[in-house]
Nucleic acid binder design. Structure first.
Length: 126
RNA sequence: AGAGUCGUUUGAUCUGUCGCUUAUUGGGCAACCAAUAAGAGGAAAGUCCGGGCAGCGCAGAGCUAUUCACUUCUUAACGGGAAGAUAUCCGUGAGGGUAUGUAUAGUGUAGAAGAAAACAACCGCCCCCAAAGGGUAAGGGUGAGAAUGCGAGGUAAGAGCUCACAACGACAUGUAGCAAUAUAUGCCGUGUACACACUGAAUGCUGAAAGUUCAAGUAUACCAGCGUAUGAGGGCUGCUCGUCCGAUAUACCAGCGCUGGAGGGUAGAACGAUAGAGUCUGGCGGUGACGUCAGAACCAGAUAAAUGACAGAUAACCCAACAAGGUUACAGAACCCGGCUUACAGAAUGACUCUUUUU
RNA sequence: GUCCCUGUAGUUCAAUGGAUAGAACAGCAGUUUCCUAAACUGCUGAUCCGGGUUCGAUUCCCGGCGGGGAUA
């Protein structure tokens, strides 16, 4: 059975959780064009909650921001097995934020590589 | 054929793999799963106007303030739109831009220059023996603007002082037009700009983060007043009458109801929120904006925010041609409508204009 | 999303619709010094963009672009 879903339940929505994630205790892994911030949140059946952010500083137009968000979402969706299987084994939940860093549009292939690198680095740390 | 002007329409297509949101149906205690259907724009943008909708306020009348201002029409409404009027500027032209209420009244202001910016006299001219004083807007130079222009008469010199011909404006009458206005005649008048003034019309304030409901929560702490059916208070949006709603327990404890003051806590969910001044097709009326009648379909509804990602093929364009390669605009709903403004690769199409060539 | 404010030299600020847009610092040149600094003298340099009103616009009006703020 395929795990390549990314439904609304896996979105990080709660304001409290987001504030906690962006506090100083969270870990960060740098990459380009995307940066990853994570926090181990405790035991839960869902292995990960994800937030994607592309700020107005990098892209002025909403069209470009939407495209960047969609590219990140797709590559996470296709590569999330990297992180799900070890976490499901431990029964831990991780909160993740992807932050866009580039000022220019980037091809999906490069984003895919970057996300894969970030996720495997994250599994190594946990 | 080329170059343009004013409109109108459109805004690449197809296939595969993996997904997202909503609705319906089926299964499941539930989480969820499966199937089917639908899923960004002409500007969704800017937030510049106008409405719907919501809360609060509100008798009437008056005062003040703001906005608008040629005419007629259009509309739910508008500072928008349509068709016209006058003036002016740009363009060979088709056309395009801008302005416009009233008042010959009154008040105020107008740097520098200039004698003077409106109760005016510097030079000049004239009266005068001269001075003093007076008359004078023909001529000079300044300026955006200098007493409407020009000719004749007239005069000491001059002056609408008088007359003819013109320019502009107000009024009266006739004609055309719904009207702005045009035109003819008569009569009266004459510096420029802005502001105040006057007239007419419109306008309560705040915006969906409005507002309503529910859950959760140690606790609505504390203070004051009123009330518990002989009823505090509230609704029916001025008041009165009328009518409706309206409070637990009661031996004690305790979180009884309403009003005012003064605090505390939570950061959740649902409604609002998508059937509409709507869309499409056709007929009729109108120069047109638009109106009206008939028929058809239901056509995004998310919530840190879905409507996608990747691969391939086709089409159009660019590099003189083919191939390779590149490009395929502007741009992403957030309560909903009507406009305006701004951005926009290309394609189609209607009417018209100019230039050249041919017949 | 909604509602406000704002834009002047390289920088920080002035200027009631009126003559060549002013001041400080900065920059450049010169004087001074053996050289530098300081000081003195002179010069360069700007009204965000496009229209309109006006005789005349940094100022008033309209549209655009940019910057900042408030609101749970």
């Amino acid at each position: 059975m395929s795990h390549h879903f990314f439904s609304k339940k896996e979105h990080l929505v709660s304001l409290q959780d987001i504030n906690a994630l962006f506090s100083q205790k969270s870990g960060a892994i740098n990459g380009y064009p995307v940066r990853l911030i994570y926090r181990v949140a405790g035991n839960n059946t869902l292995p990960a909650l994800v937030l994607i952010s592309v700020s107005k500083r990098h892209f002025k137009h909403a069209v470009d921001r939407n495209r960047a968000k969609r590219q990140i979402r797709e590559s996470y969706r296709l590569n999330k097995d990297i992180i799900w299987e070890p976490l499901a084994a431990k029964k831990q939940q991780v909160h993740i934020a992807f932050l866009w860093l580039s000022d220019t549009p980037v091809a999906s292939r490069e984003i895919n590589l970057c996300i894969r690198k970030l996720l495997s680095a994250l599994t190594a740390r946990i």
